[in-house]
């Protein structure tokens, strides 16, 4: 099995370890993992800001870059949602590209869903109480909810706890968090409190956007809750500093 990894811009720039965790987990399936060179950004910021021309300009090369792979895996629900749900929408009136976009959409999968569906064997230990935060894209665009939990269940020593009001958005929303910082601040404060109230000592999620946001707020509140991308935890990489933590 050959898998193309679309690493997503936040993982590329902010937290390469998530990319390596994803590679490790996918290689654990016995697959060959390829990271196609031309990839940059899926164009979601442009898409959500109403600049569809720019979104298409970014989508086309990515569609070409990822074409021909039986599996395209993305360690982000929101970028996977862009590929799966919105690329076809974006090219609704360009038949040639629409066909390509649909093909890519069919072959693309969010990382935790892909791992669960391919029967990944998780070989990791993490003693502690872990809360899983679902990004709105994972939850509502991709309907990926059970899969990450199933994977977490396989981690030795791990106890899962639920975040109250889990369906509520964390307030990241891409450019929203800087366009409406007061409202975003309020939403992330509520989310961070909910995380703390869950009793978790570790928070994971499949989306770097939510993670940077919630981790930032938890740190501001001086909460000891540690924050990782779910891939890092599943790959047994939680000895390294969590998101927003200094080097020790």
């Amino acid at each position: 099995m050959r898998i193309a990894l679309f690493v997503s811009c936040l993982v590329d720039l902010y937290r390469p370890s998530v990319g390596f965790a994803a590679v490790k987990l996918l290689e654990g399936l016995g697959a060959e993992v390829v990271v196609p060179e031309g990839q940059t950004c899926c164009g979601q910021p442009a898409f959500n800001s109403g600049d569809l021309a720019a979104a298409r300009d970014l989508a086309r090369p990515l569609i070409d870059t990822l074409a021909g792979f039986e599996h395209v895996v993305v360690p982000s629900g929101s970028c996977a949602g862009m590929l799966v749900k919105y690329y076809p929408e974006l090219f609704a009136h360009e038949p040639e590209w629409l066909a390509k976009a649909r093909t890519l959409a069919r072959h693309s999968r969010e990382l935790s869903a892909f791992l669960a569906e391919h029967g990944a064997v998780i070989d990791a230990r993490h003693a502690g109480r872990v809360a899983m935060h679902d990004s709105c894209s994972s939850r509502r665009e991709l309907n990926v909810l059970a899969e990450p939990r199933r994977l977490l269940n396989a981690v030795a020593g791990l106890e899962q706890v639920d975040i109250p009001e889990a369906e509520t958005c964390c307030g990241f929303g891409g450019t929203f968090c800087v366009k409406y910082p007061d409202i975003s601040a309020r939403m992330v404060s509520d989310k961070a409190e909910a995380v703390i109230n869950s009793g978790a000592d570790t928070l994971v999620s499949g989306d770097m956007g939510c993670l940077l946001n919630i981790a930032g707020r938890l740190k501001r509140m001086e909460s000891p809750v540690r924050v990782y991308h779910i891939a890092e935890l599943l790959a047994g990489m939680t000895d390294a500093p969590g998101i927003g933590e200094g080097e020790r």
């Binding site: 690493v7 993982v11 590329d12 720039l13 902010y14 937290r15 390469p16 370890s17 998530v18 990319g19 390596f20 990271v35 060179e37 990839q39 968090c177 800087v178 910082p181 975003s184 601040a185 992330v188 404060s189 940077l212 946001n213 981790a215 930032g216 707020r217 740190k219 501001r220 998101i243 927003g244």
Partner: peptide
């Protein structure tokens, strides 16, 4: 400032994934 008014901004780990790969 819009981000850091109410939350810290996590720093990047260092290096990009594409380079390291």
């Amino acid at each position: 400032g819009a981000w850091t008014a109410a939350r810290d901004l996590p720093a990047p780990q260092g290096g990009t994934f594409m380079d390291q790969w």
